[in-house]
Design a binder for these strands. Structure first.
Lengths: 219, 219
DNA sequence: GACGTTGTCAACACTCTGTCGAGAATTCTC
DNA sequence: GAGAATTCTCGACAGAGTGTTGACAACGTC
Protein backbone atom coordinates (compact mmCIF):
# COMPACT_ATOMS: atom_id res chain seq x y z
CA UNK A 1 0.00 0.00 0.00
CA UNK A 2 1.04 3.55 -0.52
CA UNK A 3 3.40 2.12 -3.05
CA UNK A 4 5.39 5.30 -3.01
CA UNK A 5 6.48 5.45 -6.62
CA UNK A 6 4.46 8.32 -7.99
CA UNK A 7 3.65 11.97 -7.80
CA UNK A 8 5.81 13.69 -5.35
CA UNK A 9 5.95 16.66 -7.73
CA UNK A 10 9.37 16.78 -6.31
CA UNK A 11 12.08 17.13 -8.88
CA UNK A 12 11.62 19.47 -11.78
CA UNK A 13 14.69 17.85 -13.25
CA UNK A 14 12.70 14.85 -14.37
CA UNK A 15 14.92 12.59 -12.36
CA UNK A 16 13.04 10.42 -9.92
CA UNK A 17 14.66 10.60 -6.54
CA UNK A 18 16.15 7.25 -5.72
CA UNK A 19 14.90 7.84 -2.25
CA UNK A 20 11.39 8.66 -1.23
CA UNK A 21 10.92 12.09 0.24
CA UNK A 22 10.52 12.72 3.94
CA UNK A 23 7.01 14.11 3.62
CA UNK A 24 5.93 11.00 1.83
CA UNK A 25 7.42 8.82 4.52
CA UNK A 26 5.60 10.76 7.17
CA UNK A 27 2.34 10.40 5.32
CA UNK A 28 2.98 6.69 4.89
CA UNK A 29 3.41 6.30 8.64
CA UNK A 30 0.20 8.21 9.29
CA UNK A 31 -1.69 6.13 6.75
CA UNK A 32 -0.32 2.90 8.19
CA UNK A 33 -1.33 3.95 11.68
CA UNK A 34 -4.86 4.79 10.61
CA UNK A 35 -5.20 1.52 8.76
CA UNK A 36 -3.83 -0.57 11.60
CA UNK A 37 -6.00 1.23 14.16
CA UNK A 38 -8.97 -0.08 12.25
CA UNK A 39 -7.85 -3.58 13.11
CA UNK A 40 -6.44 -3.39 16.64
CA UNK A 41 -5.77 -0.96 19.45
CA UNK A 42 -2.70 1.28 19.56
CA UNK A 43 -1.51 -0.80 22.46
CA UNK A 44 -1.40 -3.83 20.18
CA UNK A 45 0.46 -1.98 17.45
CA UNK A 46 4.22 -1.80 17.81
CA UNK A 47 6.53 0.85 16.46
CA UNK A 48 7.93 -1.89 14.30
CA UNK A 49 4.51 -2.51 12.73
CA UNK A 50 4.26 1.16 11.92
CA UNK A 51 7.76 1.31 10.49
CA UNK A 52 7.41 -1.82 8.39
CA UNK A 53 4.03 -0.65 7.13
CA UNK A 54 5.66 2.53 5.93
CA UNK A 55 8.58 0.66 4.40
CA UNK A 56 11.24 1.85 6.80
CA UNK A 57 13.21 0.45 9.70
CA UNK A 58 12.33 1.01 13.30
CA UNK A 59 15.09 3.48 14.08
CA UNK A 60 14.07 5.48 11.04
CA UNK A 61 10.57 5.73 12.43
CA UNK A 62 12.02 7.71 15.30
CA UNK A 63 13.40 10.23 12.87
CA UNK A 64 9.82 11.18 12.03
CA UNK A 65 7.94 10.67 15.27
CA UNK A 66 9.03 10.54 18.89
CA UNK A 67 6.70 7.65 19.69
CA UNK A 68 3.59 5.94 18.46
CA UNK A 69 1.57 8.28 20.66
CA UNK A 70 2.97 11.18 18.66
CA UNK A 71 1.56 9.58 15.53
CA UNK A 72 -1.86 9.40 17.13
CA UNK A 73 -1.54 13.03 18.13
CA UNK A 74 -0.96 13.99 14.51
CA UNK A 75 -3.96 11.95 13.46
CA UNK A 76 -6.02 13.64 16.18
CA UNK A 77 -5.22 17.09 14.85
CA UNK A 78 -7.20 16.39 11.72
CA UNK A 79 -10.08 14.85 13.62
CA UNK A 80 -10.28 17.76 16.01
CA UNK A 81 -10.31 20.35 13.26
CA UNK A 82 -13.17 18.59 11.58
CA UNK A 83 -15.19 18.02 14.73
CA UNK A 84 -15.07 21.68 15.64
CA UNK A 85 -16.27 22.86 12.28
CA UNK A 86 -19.89 21.73 12.64
CA UNK A 87 -20.71 23.67 15.77
CA UNK A 88 -22.64 26.93 15.54
CA UNK A 89 -24.18 27.34 18.95
CA UNK A 90 -24.30 31.10 18.52
CA UNK A 91 -27.50 30.62 16.55
CA UNK A 92 -29.14 28.63 19.33
CA UNK A 93 -32.03 31.05 19.98
CA UNK A 94 -33.19 30.94 16.37
CA UNK A 95 -33.91 27.24 16.31
CA UNK A 96 -32.89 25.54 19.55
CA UNK A 97 -33.85 22.04 18.61
CA UNK A 98 -32.29 22.22 15.17
CA UNK A 99 -29.06 23.79 16.34
CA UNK A 100 -28.58 21.29 19.14
CA UNK A 101 -29.35 18.46 16.79
CA UNK A 102 -26.99 19.61 14.09
CA UNK A 103 -24.22 20.27 16.58
CA UNK A 104 -24.44 16.81 18.08
CA UNK A 105 -24.87 15.22 14.66
CA UNK A 106 -21.74 16.93 13.42
CA UNK A 107 -19.56 15.46 16.13
CA UNK A 108 -21.33 12.13 15.76
CA UNK A 109 -20.64 12.03 12.05
CA UNK A 110 -17.04 13.12 12.39
CA UNK A 111 -16.38 10.41 14.94
CA UNK A 112 -18.06 7.81 12.77
CA UNK A 113 -16.02 8.86 9.81
CA UNK A 114 -12.75 8.52 11.69
CA UNK A 115 -13.80 5.79 14.04
CA UNK A 116 -10.34 4.27 14.57
CA UNK A 117 -8.76 7.59 15.45
CA UNK A 118 -11.63 8.75 17.66
CA UNK A 119 -11.64 5.49 19.53
CA UNK A 120 -7.89 5.40 20.01
CA UNK A 121 -7.84 9.02 21.15
CA UNK A 122 -10.18 8.25 23.99
CA UNK A 123 -8.59 4.93 24.88
CA UNK A 124 -5.05 6.22 24.95
CA UNK A 125 -5.90 9.17 27.17
CA UNK A 126 -5.23 7.06 30.23
CA UNK A 127 -1.69 6.29 29.18
CA UNK A 128 -0.52 9.39 27.38
CA UNK A 129 -0.48 12.82 29.05
CA UNK A 130 -0.12 14.54 25.68
CA UNK A 131 -3.24 12.87 24.28
CA UNK A 132 -5.04 13.64 27.51
CA UNK A 133 -4.15 17.30 27.22
CA UNK A 134 -5.17 17.67 23.62
CA UNK A 135 -8.49 15.98 24.25
CA UNK A 136 -8.92 18.14 27.29
CA UNK A 137 -8.48 21.29 25.28
CA UNK A 138 -11.04 20.13 22.76
CA UNK A 139 -13.61 19.30 25.41
CA UNK A 140 -12.91 22.60 27.11
CA UNK A 141 -13.75 24.35 23.87
CA UNK A 142 -17.05 22.52 23.52
CA UNK A 143 -17.91 23.24 27.14
CA UNK A 144 -17.17 26.94 26.83
CA UNK A 145 -19.40 27.28 23.81
CA UNK A 146 -22.19 25.29 25.40
CA UNK A 147 -21.98 27.30 28.59
CA UNK A 148 -22.26 30.58 26.74
CA UNK A 149 -25.21 29.31 24.74
CA UNK A 150 -27.06 28.11 27.84
CA UNK A 151 -26.46 31.38 29.62
CA UNK A 152 -27.72 33.35 26.70
CA UNK A 153 -30.88 31.25 26.52
CA UNK A 154 -31.44 31.82 30.22
CA UNK A 155 -30.91 35.56 29.85
CA UNK A 156 -33.48 35.59 27.09
CA UNK A 157 -35.94 33.81 29.36
CA UNK A 158 -36.22 30.75 27.13
CA UNK A 159 -34.42 28.46 29.56
CA UNK A 160 -35.02 28.29 33.31
CA UNK A 161 -32.37 28.89 35.93
CA UNK A 162 -31.16 25.88 37.87
CA UNK A 163 -27.89 24.02 37.77
CA UNK A 164 -24.97 26.38 37.02
CA UNK A 165 -24.70 26.63 33.26
CA UNK A 166 -21.13 25.47 33.19
CA UNK A 167 -21.79 22.38 35.29
CA UNK A 168 -24.68 21.52 33.03
CA UNK A 169 -22.51 22.03 29.96
CA UNK A 170 -19.76 19.82 31.35
CA UNK A 171 -22.10 16.97 32.22
CA UNK A 172 -23.83 17.07 28.85
CA UNK A 173 -20.62 17.18 26.85
CA UNK A 174 -19.06 14.38 28.85
CA UNK A 175 -22.22 12.38 28.34
CA UNK A 176 -21.94 12.79 24.60
CA UNK A 177 -18.31 11.72 24.60
CA UNK A 178 -19.04 8.62 26.64
CA UNK A 179 -22.12 7.65 24.66
CA UNK A 180 -20.27 8.04 21.37
CA UNK A 181 -17.39 6.01 22.69
CA UNK A 182 -19.69 3.24 23.86
CA UNK A 183 -21.44 2.84 20.55
CA UNK A 184 -18.26 3.30 18.53
CA UNK A 185 -16.40 0.63 20.45
CA UNK A 186 -19.31 -1.77 20.40
CA UNK A 187 -19.13 -2.28 24.13
CA UNK A 188 -21.87 -3.60 26.31
CA UNK A 189 -24.48 -1.07 27.30
CA UNK A 190 -24.61 1.25 24.32
CA UNK A 191 -27.29 3.05 22.41
CA UNK A 192 -28.02 1.87 18.91
CA UNK A 193 -26.36 4.11 16.37
CA UNK A 194 -29.64 5.21 14.84
CA UNK A 195 -31.31 6.09 18.13
CA UNK A 196 -28.27 7.77 19.61
CA UNK A 197 -28.86 11.18 18.17
CA UNK A 198 -32.52 11.33 19.23
CA UNK A 199 -31.68 10.31 22.77
CA UNK A 200 -28.86 12.80 23.19
CA UNK A 201 -30.78 15.69 21.67
CA UNK A 202 -33.77 14.99 23.90
CA UNK A 203 -31.62 14.94 27.03
CA UNK A 204 -29.85 18.16 26.08
CA UNK A 205 -33.14 19.94 25.47
CA UNK A 206 -34.77 18.61 28.61
CA UNK A 207 -31.75 19.47 30.73
CA UNK A 208 -31.48 22.99 29.34
CA UNK A 209 -35.10 23.95 28.67
CA UNK A 210 -37.17 21.43 30.63
CA UNK A 211 -38.93 20.45 27.41
CA UNK A 212 -38.08 18.80 24.13
CA UNK A 213 -39.89 21.58 22.33
CA UNK A 214 -38.27 24.83 23.37
CA UNK A 215 -39.48 28.20 22.06
CA UNK A 216 -37.47 29.80 19.31
CA UNK A 217 -36.86 33.52 19.24
CA UNK A 218 -39.58 35.30 17.31
CA UNK A 219 -37.12 38.00 16.36
CA UNK B 1 -18.35 -18.35 33.38
CA UNK B 2 -19.03 -15.93 36.10
CA UNK B 3 -17.47 -17.47 39.13
CA UNK B 4 -14.45 -15.79 40.62
CA UNK B 5 -12.14 -15.63 37.66
CA UNK B 6 -10.10 -13.21 39.65
CA UNK B 7 -7.64 -15.42 41.40
CA UNK B 8 -6.20 -17.51 38.67
CA UNK B 9 -3.84 -19.80 40.47
CA UNK B 10 -5.87 -20.39 43.58
CA UNK B 11 -7.18 -23.76 44.57
CA UNK B 12 -9.49 -25.24 47.14
CA UNK B 13 -9.88 -23.84 50.59
CA UNK B 14 -9.57 -26.02 53.62
CA UNK B 15 -5.81 -25.84 53.79
CA UNK B 16 -4.61 -24.85 57.24
CA UNK B 17 -2.60 -21.64 57.24
CA UNK B 18 1.07 -22.37 57.51
CA UNK B 19 3.86 -20.08 58.57
CA UNK B 20 3.25 -17.30 56.12
CA UNK B 21 0.01 -18.38 54.58
CA UNK B 22 -0.94 -17.97 50.98
CA UNK B 23 -4.02 -16.00 51.87
CA UNK B 24 -1.88 -13.54 53.70
CA UNK B 25 0.40 -13.17 50.72
CA UNK B 26 -2.55 -12.65 48.46
CA UNK B 27 -3.88 -9.96 50.74
CA UNK B 28 -0.47 -8.34 50.82
CA UNK B 29 -0.43 -8.16 47.02
CA UNK B 30 -3.90 -6.66 46.98
CA UNK B 31 -2.98 -4.12 49.63
CA UNK B 32 0.20 -3.19 47.81
CA UNK B 33 -1.72 -2.73 44.58
CA UNK B 34 -4.28 -0.48 46.21
CA UNK B 35 -1.59 1.58 47.87
CA UNK B 36 0.48 1.94 44.70
CA UNK B 37 -2.58 2.82 42.63
CA UNK B 38 -2.98 5.84 44.88
CA UNK B 39 0.36 7.07 43.61
CA UNK B 40 0.49 6.10 39.95
CA UNK B 41 -1.45 4.33 37.25
CA UNK B 42 -1.49 0.56 36.82
CA UNK B 43 0.47 1.07 33.65
CA UNK B 44 3.27 2.60 35.68
CA UNK B 45 3.27 -0.19 38.22
CA UNK B 46 5.26 -3.29 37.32
CA UNK B 47 4.66 -6.82 38.50
CA UNK B 48 7.99 -6.47 40.23
CA UNK B 49 6.70 -3.49 42.23
CA UNK B 50 3.73 -5.53 43.33
CA UNK B 51 5.85 -8.54 44.24
CA UNK B 52 8.45 -6.54 46.15
CA UNK B 53 5.72 -4.63 47.96
CA UNK B 54 4.28 -7.93 49.13
CA UNK B 55 7.69 -9.26 50.08
CA UNK B 56 7.98 -11.91 47.41
CA UNK B 57 9.85 -12.42 44.15
CA UNK B 58 8.36 -11.76 40.76
CA UNK B 59 7.88 -15.39 39.77
CA UNK B 60 6.12 -16.01 43.06
CA UNK B 61 3.66 -13.26 42.21
CA UNK B 62 2.52 -15.39 39.30
CA UNK B 63 1.66 -18.15 41.69
CA UNK B 64 -1.08 -15.92 43.08
CA UNK B 65 -2.22 -13.88 40.12
CA UNK B 66 -2.00 -14.38 36.39
CA UNK B 67 -1.14 -10.74 35.75
CA UNK B 68 -1.42 -7.34 37.31
CA UNK B 69 -4.77 -6.93 35.59
CA UNK B 70 -6.00 -9.93 37.56
CA UNK B 71 -5.09 -8.09 40.74
CA UNK B 72 -7.15 -5.11 39.66
CA UNK B 73 -10.02 -7.45 38.88
CA UNK B 74 -9.94 -8.77 42.43
CA UNK B 75 -9.91 -5.21 43.76
CA UNK B 76 -12.84 -4.38 41.50
CA UNK B 77 -14.93 -7.19 42.96
CA UNK B 78 -15.07 -5.39 46.28
CA UNK B 79 -15.77 -2.03 44.71
CA UNK B 80 -18.56 -3.40 42.61
CA UNK B 81 -20.25 -5.14 45.51
CA UNK B 82 -20.24 -1.93 47.48
CA UNK B 83 -21.41 0.29 44.63
CA UNK B 84 -24.40 -1.91 43.97
CA UNK B 85 -25.56 -1.91 47.57
CA UNK B 86 -26.77 1.70 47.71
CA UNK B 87 -29.28 1.44 44.90
CA UNK B 88 -32.96 1.03 45.65
CA UNK B 89 -34.69 2.27 42.56
CA UNK B 90 -37.70 0.10 43.30
CA UNK B 91 -38.88 2.79 45.68
CA UNK B 92 -38.66 5.50 43.06
CA UNK B 93 -42.35 6.43 43.03
CA UNK B 94 -42.38 7.14 46.75
CA UNK B 95 -39.84 9.93 46.61
CA UNK B 96 -38.36 10.36 43.14
CA UNK B 97 -36.00 13.16 43.94
CA UNK B 98 -34.71 11.53 47.12
CA UNK B 99 -34.26 8.10 45.60
CA UNK B 100 -32.40 9.40 42.58
CA UNK B 101 -30.24 11.54 44.79
CA UNK B 102 -29.39 8.75 47.19
CA UNK B 103 -28.69 6.34 44.36
CA UNK B 104 -26.26 8.67 42.65
CA UNK B 105 -24.75 9.70 45.96
CA UNK B 106 -24.13 6.09 46.84
CA UNK B 107 -22.07 5.43 43.74
CA UNK B 108 -20.38 8.78 44.10
CA UNK B 109 -19.34 8.00 47.66
CA UNK B 110 -18.18 4.50 46.86
CA UNK B 111 -16.02 5.77 44.04
CA UNK B 112 -14.58 8.50 46.24
CA UNK B 113 -13.83 6.01 48.94
CA UNK B 114 -11.93 3.72 46.57
CA UNK B 115 -10.70 6.37 44.20
CA UNK B 116 -7.57 4.53 43.06
CA UNK B 117 -9.45 1.37 42.20
CA UNK B 118 -12.36 3.15 40.54
CA UNK B 119 -10.01 5.23 38.46
CA UNK B 120 -7.84 2.32 37.42
CA UNK B 121 -10.89 0.21 36.55
CA UNK B 122 -12.02 2.77 34.04
CA UNK B 123 -8.56 3.54 32.70
CA UNK B 124 -7.57 -0.07 32.18
CA UNK B 125 -10.77 -0.96 30.34
CA UNK B 126 -9.13 -0.02 27.07
CA UNK B 127 -6.30 -2.49 27.55
CA UNK B 128 -7.87 -5.40 29.35
CA UNK B 129 -10.82 -7.34 27.96
CA UNK B 130 -11.51 -8.90 31.35
CA UNK B 131 -11.77 -5.53 33.05
CA UNK B 132 -13.90 -4.28 30.21
CA UNK B 133 -16.27 -7.18 30.61
CA UNK B 134 -16.62 -6.87 34.35
CA UNK B 135 -17.28 -3.15 34.10
CA UNK B 136 -19.70 -3.86 31.33
CA UNK B 137 -21.68 -6.24 33.49
CA UNK B 138 -21.85 -3.69 36.26
CA UNK B 139 -23.08 -0.93 33.97
CA UNK B 140 -25.56 -3.32 32.45
CA UNK B 141 -26.96 -3.93 35.90
CA UNK B 142 -27.37 -0.23 36.60
CA UNK B 143 -28.96 0.32 33.23
CA UNK B 144 -31.46 -2.51 33.70
CA UNK B 145 -32.58 -1.15 37.04
CA UNK B 146 -32.83 2.40 35.74
CA UNK B 147 -34.80 1.27 32.72
CA UNK B 148 -37.31 -0.60 34.85
CA UNK B 149 -37.72 2.37 37.17
CA UNK B 150 -38.28 4.80 34.31
CA UNK B 151 -40.82 2.53 32.69
CA UNK B 152 -42.69 2.12 35.92
CA UNK B 153 -42.82 5.89 36.42
CA UNK B 154 -44.15 6.28 32.90
CA UNK B 155 -46.78 3.61 33.46
CA UNK B 156 -47.87 5.44 36.58
CA UNK B 157 -48.22 8.64 34.58
CA UNK B 158 -45.61 10.50 36.60
CA UNK B 159 -43.10 10.61 33.75
CA UNK B 160 -43.86 11.49 30.13
CA UNK B 161 -43.18 9.22 27.19
CA UNK B 162 -40.38 10.17 24.86
CA UNK B 163 -36.97 8.65 24.32
CA UNK B 164 -37.05 4.85 24.79
CA UNK B 165 -36.53 4.21 28.49
CA UNK B 166 -33.51 2.02 27.92
CA UNK B 167 -31.74 4.55 25.72
CA UNK B 168 -32.38 7.19 28.32
CA UNK B 169 -31.07 4.92 31.05
CA UNK B 170 -27.91 4.14 29.10
CA UNK B 171 -27.13 7.77 28.39
CA UNK B 172 -27.71 8.84 31.97
CA UNK B 173 -25.64 6.05 33.46
CA UNK B 174 -22.80 6.61 31.04
CA UNK B 175 -22.94 10.30 31.87
CA UNK B 176 -22.54 9.54 35.54
CA UNK B 177 -19.59 7.28 34.91
CA UNK B 178 -17.84 9.85 32.78
CA UNK B 179 -18.54 12.75 35.12
CA UNK B 180 -17.30 10.78 38.11
CA UNK B 181 -14.20 9.76 36.23
CA UNK B 182 -13.48 13.34 35.21
CA UNK B 183 -13.67 14.74 38.71
CA UNK B 184 -11.91 11.75 40.25
CA UNK B 185 -8.98 12.00 37.89
CA UNK B 186 -8.72 15.75 38.19
CA UNK B 187 -8.78 16.19 34.44
CA UNK B 188 -9.63 19.33 32.59
CA UNK B 189 -13.32 19.99 32.20
CA UNK B 190 -14.80 18.49 35.34
CA UNK B 191 -17.52 19.44 37.77
CA UNK B 192 -16.47 20.48 41.23
CA UNK B 193 -16.92 17.61 43.64
CA UNK B 194 -19.49 19.46 45.75
CA UNK B 195 -21.63 20.54 42.82
CA UNK B 196 -21.44 17.22 41.02
CA UNK B 197 -24.31 15.55 42.80
CA UNK B 198 -26.72 18.48 42.31
CA UNK B 199 -25.94 18.67 38.63
CA UNK B 200 -26.37 14.97 37.97
CA UNK B 201 -29.56 14.68 39.98
CA UNK B 202 -31.06 17.66 38.18
CA UNK B 203 -30.25 16.22 34.78
CA UNK B 204 -31.66 12.81 35.68
CA UNK B 205 -34.90 14.34 36.92
CA UNK B 206 -35.26 16.67 33.95
CA UNK B 207 -34.53 13.90 31.48
CA UNK B 208 -36.97 11.49 33.08
CA UNK B 209 -39.73 13.78 34.37
CA UNK B 210 -39.22 17.07 32.56
CA UNK B 211 -38.96 18.83 35.91
CA UNK B 212 -36.64 18.86 38.91
CA UNK B 213 -39.65 18.54 41.15
CA UNK B 214 -41.48 15.37 40.14
CA UNK B 215 -44.68 14.25 41.89
CA UNK B 216 -44.42 11.46 44.41
CA UNK B 217 -47.05 8.77 44.74
CA UNK B 218 -49.79 9.88 47.14
CA UNK B 219 -50.67 6.35 48.25
C1' DG C 1 9.66 -41.29 56.90
C1' DA C 2 7.92 -41.26 52.25
C1' DC C 3 4.67 -38.37 49.90
C1' DG C 4 1.93 -35.03 47.79
C1' DT C 5 0.71 -30.26 48.14
C1' DT C 6 1.88 -25.52 48.59
C1' DG C 7 5.01 -22.09 48.06
C1' DT C 8 9.51 -20.04 46.39
C1' DC C 9 12.89 -18.21 43.27
C1' DA C 10 17.22 -18.01 39.92
C1' DA C 11 17.67 -18.16 35.34
C1' DC C 12 15.93 -18.04 30.84
C1' DA C 13 13.52 -16.63 26.53
C1' DC C 14 11.16 -13.16 24.51
C1' DT C 15 9.03 -8.61 23.07
C1' DC C 16 9.16 -4.01 22.94
C1' DT C 17 11.18 0.62 23.50
C1' DG C 18 14.38 4.16 22.63
C1' DT C 19 19.38 5.63 21.48
C1' DC C 20 23.97 5.98 19.19
C1' DG C 21 26.99 6.44 15.75
C1' DA C 22 28.59 5.43 11.34
C1' DG C 23 27.57 6.28 6.82
C1' DA C 24 24.66 7.02 2.35
C1' DA C 25 21.83 10.23 -0.41
C1' DT C 26 20.49 14.81 -1.59
C1' DT C 27 20.79 19.71 -1.63
C1' DC C 28 23.36 23.95 -1.01
C1' DT C 29 27.18 27.08 -1.94
C1' DC C 30 30.74 29.00 -4.29
C1' DG D 1 30.83 20.51 -10.28
C1' DA D 2 33.65 19.78 -5.86
C1' DG D 3 33.16 20.07 -1.31
C1' DA D 4 30.22 21.20 2.77
C1' DA D 5 25.94 20.90 4.97
C1' DT D 6 21.77 18.72 5.64
C1' DT D 7 18.68 15.09 5.57
C1' DC D 8 17.84 10.54 6.03
C1' DT D 9 18.78 5.50 7.11
C1' DC D 10 19.70 1.50 9.75
C1' DG D 11 22.73 -2.18 12.39
C1' DA D 12 23.75 -2.78 16.85
C1' DC D 13 23.19 -1.84 21.55
C1' DA D 14 21.17 -1.08 26.21
C1' DG D 15 17.20 -1.58 29.07
C1' DA D 16 12.72 -2.42 31.02
C1' DG D 17 9.04 -5.58 31.27
C1' DT D 18 6.61 -9.89 30.82
C1' DG D 19 5.72 -14.68 31.49
C1' DT D 20 7.80 -19.60 31.93
C1' DT D 21 10.66 -23.45 33.53
C1' DG D 22 12.62 -26.41 36.57
C1' DA D 23 14.78 -27.37 40.71
C1' DC D 24 13.95 -27.15 45.47
C1' DA D 25 12.33 -26.20 50.31
C1' DA D 26 8.76 -26.47 53.91
C1' DC D 27 4.83 -28.60 55.72
C1' DG D 28 0.77 -31.49 56.77
C1' DT D 29 -0.77 -36.27 56.16
C1' DC D 30 -0.83 -41.19 56.41
Amino acid sequence: MEASTTTAARSARGRRPARVSGDERERAILATAERLLGERSLHEISVDDLARGAGISRPTFYFYFASKEAVLLALMDRLVAEARSGIELGMLARDPRGVVRRGIASVHDTFREHRPVALASIDVRAKSPAVRELWSRVMEGFVDESTAAIESERARGAAPQGVPARDLAIALNLMNERVFHASLSGEAPAIDEDAELDALVAIWLLAIYGTTDPPSAVD
